[in-house]
Amino acid sequence: MSDAAGGRITSFAAAENGLPPKMEDSGTGQGMETIKDVIFGSVAGMIGKMIEYPFDTVKVRLQSQPDYLSPRYTGPVDCFRQSIHAEGLRGLYRGISAPLVGAAIETSSLFFSYRIAQDVFKATLRPPTQGVPLPFSALVACGAASGAFTSLLLTPIELVKCQMQVPLSTSLLRRTGPFKIIASIIRHHGIFGLWHGQLGTLIRETGGSAAWFGSYEGVSALFRKHDTRSAASPSANLESKPPLPIYQQLLAGATAGVSYNFVFYPADTIKSRMQTEGVEPGSNVRRTFWASGKALWRQQGIKGMYRGCGITVVRAAPSSAFIFAIYEGLRNWWGRGP
């Protein structure tokens, strides 16, 4: 994301060129950067969600299997097979409307708040300077702050998504859309009921976003270190250094996706169980994060905490790779102009 005057250099593109984001000189510049964060982040997030959504549906179904029954699915492949047999391929995309909105909000919010967090760090840790990169630890902290902010926007969307993803045979919501689900939640639990599972989302997004941005920045820095094009002209202006090749951007993005999903996966599992517990007919269960976690640990141990993790990591790699590549591509295209 860009903090440079003129709006061309993003935090990642700047990192590829050896530059940190620069402080904006005007409110107009900041406003334009916000618009670009929202538009480009939304496009990248929605495309990434289309790629990963069937795998996410399988993950939620594996995570939300009841404690008191034998597992309905033996694994991801069996879940895919049963789901397609019962509902067809369309069933794996059931409830995608809310996640598409959520992906647009999440990704644009992550990029926007990551840029703002870097501005704050530069303003508080030292006087703003041109061409001096933030330390890696500060970038990781900015990623964590970005995730914490985004979690507040994401929890209601994920609550609706999870309730629409549970199997048809166990849900009264099979003939309802997201708006009816929202109305039902508010009617039974009030407006704050939409934030059921917030602690799980906060833990996942704070730690996961730190790993997401940190991994991307770290892998990109490693590629730049061995970039013969940059080494061949060490005296060149940093802004004129060539960006990383697309395959290296994809690899860095894929690494980020794997890191994001694996490190704090148990928090996501507990959150998904919390957000699907009240879906059964006549059920009004609303357990806390810690109560849900303890119940899962007693019943299934560490294996239950990581149920569905494999398929999540598999779908996260290409999705995250395309998110970063599309976002950076749009940024570079905008910067070149007509």
Rank of each mutant, 00 (worst) to 15 (best):
D3H: 12
A4P: 03
G6H: 08
R8Q: 00
I9N: 05
A13E: 12
P21N: 12
M23V: 13
D25T: 15
G27S: 07
G31Q: 09
M32G: 02
D37F: 14
I39L: 15
V43Y: 02
A44Y: 04
G45D: 04
I47F: 13
G48A: 03
G48V: 00
M50C: 13
M50A: 07
I51N: 06
Y53I: 08
P54S: 06
P54D: 11
D56V: 15
K59F: 14
R61Y: 01
Q63Y: 07
Q65M: 14
P66G: 12
P66D: 13
S70Q: 12
Y73Q: 04
Y73G: 01
P76N: 06
D78F: 07
F80T: 11
R81N: 11
Q82L: 13
Q82E: 14
S83L: 10
H85S: 15
A86D: 15
E87A: 13
L89W: 14
G95N: 09
A98H: 05
F112E: 02
S113F: 14
Y114C: 06
R115Y: 00
R115I: 05
Q118Y: 02
K122L: 06
T129S: 12
Q130D: 15
L134I: 06
P135F: 12
F136R: 05
A138N: 03
L139R: 14
A144D: 03
A145R: 01
T150F: 00
L153R: 01
T155W: 10
T155F: 08
I157P: 02
E158V: 10
L159G: 10
V166W: 05
S171E: 03
S171L: 02
L172D: 12
P178K: 06
F179D: 11
I181A: 01
A183W: 08
S184R: 10
I186N: 07
H188K: 14
H189E: 08
L194P: 06
L194H: 07
L199T: 10
L199P: 02
L202K: 01
E205L: 13
T206R: 01
T206D: 03
G207T: 10
G207C: 11
S209A: 14
A210M: 06
G214E: 05
G214R: 07
S215R: 02
S220M: 08
S220V: 06
F223H: 08
A231K: 14
S233T: 12
S233C: 02
N237H: 14
L238I: 03
S240D: 15
K241R: 15
Q249R: 15
Q249T: 15
L251Q: 10
G253S: 09
A267F: 14
T269Q: 09
I270Q: 08
T276A: 12
G282S: 06
A291S: 12
S292C: 07
S292W: 02
K294L: 10
K294H: 00
L296A: 00
W297F: 12
R298N: 11
Q300P: 01
Q300W: 03
Q300L: 00
M305G: 03
A321P: 08
I323D: 04
W333F: 10
W333H: 10
W334Q: 13
R336C: 00
